[in-house]
Protein backbone atom coordinates (compact mmCIF):
# COMPACT_ATOMS: atom_id res chain seq x y z
CA UNK A 1 0.00 0.00 0.00
CA UNK A 2 1.31 3.44 -0.89
CA UNK A 3 2.46 5.64 1.99
CA UNK A 4 0.57 8.64 0.74
CA UNK A 5 -3.16 7.93 0.75
CA UNK A 6 -3.99 11.11 -1.05
CA UNK A 7 -1.69 13.42 -2.92
CA UNK A 8 -2.80 16.51 -4.78
CA UNK A 9 -0.48 18.80 -6.72
CA UNK A 10 -1.41 22.23 -8.02
CA UNK A 11 -5.05 21.22 -8.26
CA UNK A 12 -6.91 24.19 -9.67
CA UNK A 13 -10.48 25.12 -10.49
CA UNK A 14 -10.70 28.83 -11.04
CA UNK A 15 -14.18 30.35 -11.07
CA UNK A 16 -12.69 33.87 -11.06
CA UNK A 17 -13.02 36.59 -8.41
CA UNK A 18 -11.01 34.53 -5.95
CA UNK A 19 -13.56 31.70 -6.08
CA UNK A 20 -12.68 28.06 -6.58
CA UNK A 21 -9.44 26.44 -5.53
CA UNK A 22 -6.06 27.45 -6.90
CA UNK A 23 -2.81 25.49 -6.85
CA UNK A 24 -3.90 23.22 -4.03
CA UNK A 25 -1.12 20.86 -3.01
CA UNK A 26 -0.90 18.53 -0.03
CA UNK A 27 -0.67 14.88 0.80
CA UNK A 28 -2.31 12.73 3.44
CA UNK A 29 -0.63 9.78 5.08
CA UNK A 30 -1.90 6.57 6.54
CA UNK A 31 -3.87 6.90 9.75
CA UNK A 32 -4.01 10.70 9.70
CA UNK A 33 -7.09 12.74 10.46
CA UNK A 34 -6.66 15.99 8.59
CA UNK A 35 -8.93 18.97 9.05
CA UNK A 36 -9.58 21.24 6.11
CA UNK A 37 -10.68 24.59 7.44
CA UNK A 38 -11.51 27.97 6.00
CA UNK A 39 -14.25 30.54 5.67
CA UNK A 40 -17.39 29.97 3.59
CA UNK A 41 -16.60 29.97 -0.11
CA UNK A 42 -12.87 29.57 0.50
CA UNK A 43 -12.68 26.49 -1.73
CA UNK A 44 -13.00 23.55 0.66
CA UNK A 45 -15.89 21.83 -1.15
CA UNK A 46 -14.42 22.63 -4.57
CA UNK A 47 -11.17 20.92 -3.56
CA UNK A 48 -12.99 17.86 -2.26
CA UNK A 49 -15.16 17.69 -5.36
CA UNK A 50 -12.07 17.80 -7.58
CA UNK A 51 -10.53 14.99 -5.55
CA UNK A 52 -13.72 12.97 -5.98
CA UNK A 53 -13.84 13.83 -9.72
CA UNK A 54 -17.27 15.35 -9.30
CA UNK A 55 -15.85 18.42 -10.99
CA UNK A 56 -13.00 18.44 -13.46
CA UNK A 57 -9.98 20.50 -12.41
CA UNK A 58 -8.60 23.11 -14.79
CA UNK A 59 -5.14 21.76 -14.07
CA UNK A 60 -3.13 19.84 -11.52
CA UNK A 61 -2.92 16.19 -10.59
CA UNK A 62 -4.25 13.93 -7.89
CA UNK A 63 -3.26 10.51 -6.72
CA UNK A 64 -5.64 8.49 -4.56
CA UNK A 65 -4.41 5.36 -2.80
CA UNK A 66 -1.51 5.18 -5.23
CA UNK A 67 -3.66 5.55 -8.36
CA UNK A 68 -3.09 8.53 -10.62
CA UNK A 69 -6.48 10.10 -11.37
CA UNK A 70 -6.38 11.69 -14.81
CA UNK A 71 -10.03 11.47 -15.71
CA UNK A 72 -13.33 10.32 -14.28
CA UNK A 73 -12.89 6.71 -15.33
CA UNK A 74 -9.69 6.44 -13.27
CA UNK A 75 -11.40 7.13 -9.99
CA UNK A 76 -13.56 4.02 -10.39
CA UNK A 77 -10.43 1.95 -9.71
CA UNK A 78 -10.21 3.26 -6.16
CA UNK A 79 -13.79 4.11 -5.26
CA UNK A 80 -14.31 0.81 -3.46
CA UNK A 81 -11.61 1.97 -1.02
CA UNK A 82 -12.85 5.53 -0.63
CA UNK A 83 -15.81 6.83 1.38
CA UNK A 84 -17.34 10.22 0.68
CA UNK A 85 -19.93 12.35 2.40
CA UNK A 86 -21.09 15.46 0.56
CA UNK A 87 -21.83 18.66 2.47
CA UNK A 88 -25.49 18.23 1.63
CA UNK A 89 -27.64 15.74 -0.21
CA UNK A 90 -26.17 12.45 -1.28
CA UNK A 91 -29.17 10.49 -0.04
CA UNK A 92 -32.47 9.32 -1.50
CA UNK A 93 -35.09 11.04 0.61
CA UNK A 94 -37.84 8.53 -0.20
CA UNK A 95 -35.84 5.54 1.02
CA UNK A 96 -35.32 4.33 4.56
CA UNK A 97 -31.86 4.27 6.10
CA UNK A 98 -31.87 0.48 5.83
CA UNK A 99 -32.72 0.58 2.12
CA UNK A 100 -29.92 3.09 1.54
CA UNK A 101 -27.39 0.94 3.38
CA UNK A 102 -28.49 -2.18 1.50
CA UNK A 103 -28.18 -0.34 -1.81
CA UNK A 104 -24.74 0.99 -0.84
CA UNK A 105 -23.58 -2.52 0.08
CA UNK A 106 -24.70 -3.82 -3.30
CA UNK A 107 -22.91 -1.01 -5.14
CA UNK A 108 -19.73 -1.59 -3.14
CA UNK A 109 -20.09 -5.29 -3.88
CA UNK A 110 -19.92 -6.34 -0.24
CA UNK A 111 -21.88 -8.87 1.74
CA UNK A 112 -24.14 -7.47 4.41
CA UNK A 113 -22.57 -8.28 7.79
CA UNK A 114 -24.91 -6.27 10.01
CA UNK A 115 -22.23 -3.66 10.59
CA UNK A 116 -24.53 -0.80 9.68
CA UNK A 117 -27.17 -2.05 12.12
CA UNK A 118 -24.56 -2.02 14.88
CA UNK A 119 -23.47 1.50 14.01
CA UNK A 120 -27.06 2.70 13.74
CA UNK A 121 -27.82 1.29 17.19
CA UNK A 122 -24.74 3.02 18.61
CA UNK A 123 -25.89 6.27 17.08
CA UNK A 124 -29.53 5.77 18.10
CA UNK A 125 -30.62 5.97 14.50
CA UNK A 126 -33.93 4.49 13.39
CA UNK A 127 -33.01 2.83 10.10
CA UNK A 128 -36.61 1.99 9.26
CA UNK A 129 -37.63 5.62 8.91
CA UNK A 130 -37.58 7.31 5.52
CA UNK A 131 -34.73 9.78 5.17
CA UNK A 132 -37.15 12.64 4.51
CA UNK A 133 -38.68 12.02 7.95
CA UNK A 134 -35.32 12.26 9.71
CA UNK A 135 -33.81 15.31 11.39
CA UNK A 136 -30.69 16.92 9.91
CA UNK A 137 -28.55 15.19 12.53
CA UNK A 138 -29.98 11.77 11.73
CA UNK A 139 -29.58 12.39 8.00
CA UNK A 140 -25.90 13.09 8.64
CA UNK A 141 -25.69 9.83 10.56
CA UNK A 142 -27.14 7.97 7.58
CA UNK A 143 -24.65 9.78 5.35
CA UNK A 144 -21.70 8.83 7.54
CA UNK A 145 -22.73 5.19 7.84
CA UNK A 146 -23.21 4.79 4.08
CA UNK A 147 -19.77 6.37 3.58
CA UNK A 148 -17.98 3.93 5.91
CA UNK A 149 -20.13 0.85 5.33
CA UNK A 150 -17.42 -0.72 3.14
CA UNK A 151 -14.59 0.10 5.60
CA UNK A 152 -12.71 2.39 3.18
CA UNK A 153 -9.02 3.22 3.53
CA UNK A 154 -9.68 6.89 2.85
CA UNK A 155 -12.69 8.79 4.12
CA UNK A 156 -13.51 12.23 2.75
CA UNK A 157 -16.13 14.15 4.71
CA UNK A 158 -17.39 17.55 3.65
CA UNK A 159 -18.62 19.33 6.77
CA UNK A 160 -19.87 16.20 8.52
CA UNK A 161 -21.07 18.01 11.64
CA UNK A 162 -22.33 21.34 10.34
CA UNK A 163 -25.72 22.32 11.73
CA UNK A 164 -25.75 19.54 14.32
CA UNK A 165 -26.26 19.82 18.05
CA UNK A 166 -23.22 19.20 20.27
CA UNK A 167 -24.32 15.73 21.32
CA UNK A 168 -24.67 14.45 17.76
CA UNK A 169 -21.47 16.27 16.78
CA UNK A 170 -19.66 14.35 19.50
CA UNK A 171 -21.17 11.04 18.38
CA UNK A 172 -20.00 11.64 14.82
CA UNK A 173 -16.54 12.72 15.96
CA UNK A 174 -16.29 9.53 18.00
CA UNK A 175 -17.07 7.48 14.90
CA UNK A 176 -14.37 9.35 12.99
CA UNK A 177 -11.81 8.81 15.75
CA UNK A 178 -12.71 5.14 16.01
CA UNK A 179 -12.51 4.79 12.24
CA UNK A 180 -9.07 6.40 12.11
CA UNK A 181 -7.72 4.31 14.99
CA UNK A 182 -7.77 1.34 12.61
CA UNK A 183 -5.05 2.98 10.47
CA UNK A 184 -7.42 4.63 8.04
CA UNK A 185 -7.10 8.18 6.78
CA UNK A 186 -9.76 10.84 7.22
CA UNK A 187 -9.92 14.16 5.41
CA UNK A 188 -12.68 16.37 6.75
CA UNK A 189 -13.70 19.92 6.18
CA UNK A 190 -15.22 21.97 8.94
CA UNK A 191 -16.02 25.46 10.15
CA UNK A 192 -15.78 24.33 13.73
CA UNK A 193 -12.18 24.86 14.80
CA UNK A 194 -12.74 23.44 18.28
CA UNK A 195 -13.96 20.23 16.68
CA UNK A 196 -10.97 20.14 14.32
CA UNK A 197 -8.65 20.68 17.28
CA UNK A 198 -10.25 17.82 19.21
CA UNK A 199 -10.10 15.26 16.45
CA UNK A 200 -7.52 16.21 13.80
CA UNK A 201 -3.82 15.43 13.78
CA UNK A 202 -3.20 18.05 11.14
CA UNK A 203 -4.85 21.20 9.89
CA UNK A 204 -4.87 22.64 6.40
CA UNK A 205 -6.33 26.11 6.06
CA UNK A 206 -7.66 27.51 2.82
CA UNK A 207 -8.61 31.12 2.22
CA UNK A 208 -9.54 32.92 -0.99
CA UNK A 209 -9.05 29.65 -2.91
CA UNK A 210 -5.46 29.14 -1.74
CA UNK A 211 -3.90 27.06 1.01
CA UNK A 212 -2.36 29.40 3.55
CA UNK A 213 -1.48 26.96 6.30
CA UNK A 214 -0.64 23.29 6.67
CA UNK A 215 0.77 21.98 9.94
CA UNK A 216 0.32 19.53 12.80
CA UNK A 217 -2.43 20.56 15.21
CA UNK A 218 -0.13 20.27 18.22
CA UNK A 219 2.53 22.47 16.60
CA UNK A 220 -0.03 25.14 15.78
CA UNK A 221 -1.41 25.11 19.31
CA UNK A 222 1.99 25.16 21.00
CA UNK A 223 3.46 27.66 18.58
CA UNK A 224 2.36 30.64 20.60
CA UNK A 225 2.71 29.09 24.04
CA UNK A 226 0.08 29.19 26.75
CA UNK A 227 -2.11 31.90 28.15
CA UNK A 228 -2.20 32.94 31.82
CA UNK A 229 -5.20 35.06 32.73
CA UNK A 230 -4.80 37.22 35.83
CA UNK A 231 -7.92 38.72 37.40
CA UNK A 232 -7.34 42.24 38.73
CA UNK A 233 -3.65 41.73 39.57
CA UNK A 234 -1.96 44.31 41.84
CA UNK A 235 0.34 46.80 40.11
CA UNK A 236 3.41 45.40 41.80
CA UNK A 237 2.84 41.99 40.21
CA UNK A 238 2.34 43.54 36.80
CA UNK A 239 5.55 45.53 37.15
CA UNK A 240 7.46 42.37 38.03
CA UNK A 241 5.90 40.54 35.06
CA UNK A 242 6.82 43.39 32.71
CA UNK A 243 10.43 42.82 33.67
CA UNK A 244 10.14 39.22 32.50
CA UNK A 245 7.83 39.50 29.48
CA UNK A 246 7.83 41.76 26.44
CA UNK A 247 4.91 44.19 26.18
CA UNK A 248 3.34 42.42 23.19
CA UNK A 249 2.87 39.33 25.34
CA UNK A 250 0.76 41.27 27.84
CA UNK A 251 -2.77 42.26 26.91
CA UNK A 252 -5.67 43.73 28.84
CA UNK A 253 -9.06 42.16 28.43
CA UNK A 254 -11.62 43.85 30.70
CA UNK A 255 -10.65 43.13 34.27
CA UNK A 256 -8.24 40.45 33.11
CA UNK A 257 -4.62 40.69 32.10
CA UNK A 258 -3.76 38.04 29.51
CA UNK A 259 -0.16 36.86 29.36
CA UNK A 260 1.01 34.74 26.45
CA UNK A 261 4.05 32.72 27.52
CA UNK A 262 6.23 29.97 26.16
CA UNK A 263 7.28 28.91 29.67
CA UNK A 264 4.98 29.04 32.67
CA UNK A 265 7.54 28.73 35.40
CA UNK A 266 8.93 32.34 35.65
CA UNK A 267 5.43 33.84 35.84
CA UNK A 268 4.10 31.26 38.25
CA UNK A 269 7.11 31.94 40.48
CA UNK A 270 6.17 35.64 40.68
CA UNK A 271 2.53 34.86 41.36
CA UNK A 272 3.46 32.41 44.12
CA UNK A 273 5.83 34.92 45.63
CA UNK A 274 2.94 37.36 46.14
CA UNK A 275 0.53 34.55 46.95
CA UNK A 276 -1.73 35.70 44.10
CA UNK A 277 -4.25 33.00 43.26
CA UNK A 278 -6.79 34.75 41.05
CA UNK A 279 -5.50 33.38 37.79
CA UNK A 280 -6.06 30.50 35.41
CA UNK A 281 -4.05 28.93 32.61
CA UNK A 282 -5.46 28.25 29.16
CA UNK A 283 -4.08 26.22 26.32
CA UNK A 284 -4.43 28.38 23.19
CA UNK A 285 -7.02 27.05 20.76
CA UNK A 286 -7.03 26.76 16.99
CA UNK A 287 -9.87 29.21 17.05
CA UNK A 288 -7.67 31.86 18.62
CA UNK A 289 -4.85 31.02 16.25
CA UNK A 290 -6.96 31.23 13.13
CA UNK A 291 -9.73 33.62 13.97
CA UNK A 292 -7.78 36.59 12.63
CA UNK A 293 -7.32 34.72 9.37
CA UNK A 294 -11.07 34.37 8.82
Amino acid sequence: MADSFLEVKNLTKNYGNGKGAIDISFSLNSGEIVGFVGPNGAGKSTTMEMIMSLINPDRGSRKILGEEINDRSDIQKVMSRVGYLAAEGGLYEDLTGKQIFNYAEKLYGIESNGEFEKLATELQLDINKKVKALSLGNKKKVGIIQAIIHQPDLLILDEPTSGLDPLIQQQILNIIKDFSSKGRTVFLSSHNLAEVQSVCDRVIMIKDAKIIFDDKTESIINENGKEIRLINPPKIILDRIRNVLQDESIKESGTEIVLTVKRLHPILKILMEYEFEDFYIEKPSLEKRFINLY
Binding site: M52, R72, M79, G89, G90, I100, Y103, A104
Partner: peptide
Protein backbone atom coordinates in the same frame (compact mmCIF):
# COMPACT_ATOMS: atom_id res chain seq x y z
CA UNK B 1 -30.94 19.13 -8.34
CA UNK B 2 -31.68 17.31 -5.09
CA UNK B 3 -28.10 16.01 -4.99
CA UNK B 4 -29.10 12.38 -4.55
CA UNK B 5 -26.90 11.69 -7.61
CA UNK B 6 -23.94 12.14 -5.24
CA UNK B 7 -24.90 8.84 -3.62
CA UNK B 8 -24.24 7.02 -6.89
CA UNK B 9 -21.24 9.13 -7.89
CA UNK B 10 -19.51 8.35 -4.61
CA UNK B 11 -19.77 4.62 -5.27
CA UNK B 12 -17.58 2.49 -7.52
CA UNK B 13 -19.89 2.82 -10.52
CA UNK B 14 -19.17 4.81 -13.66
CA UNK B 15 -21.40 7.53 -14.99
Amino acid sequence: NNKSILFLLSKPVSR
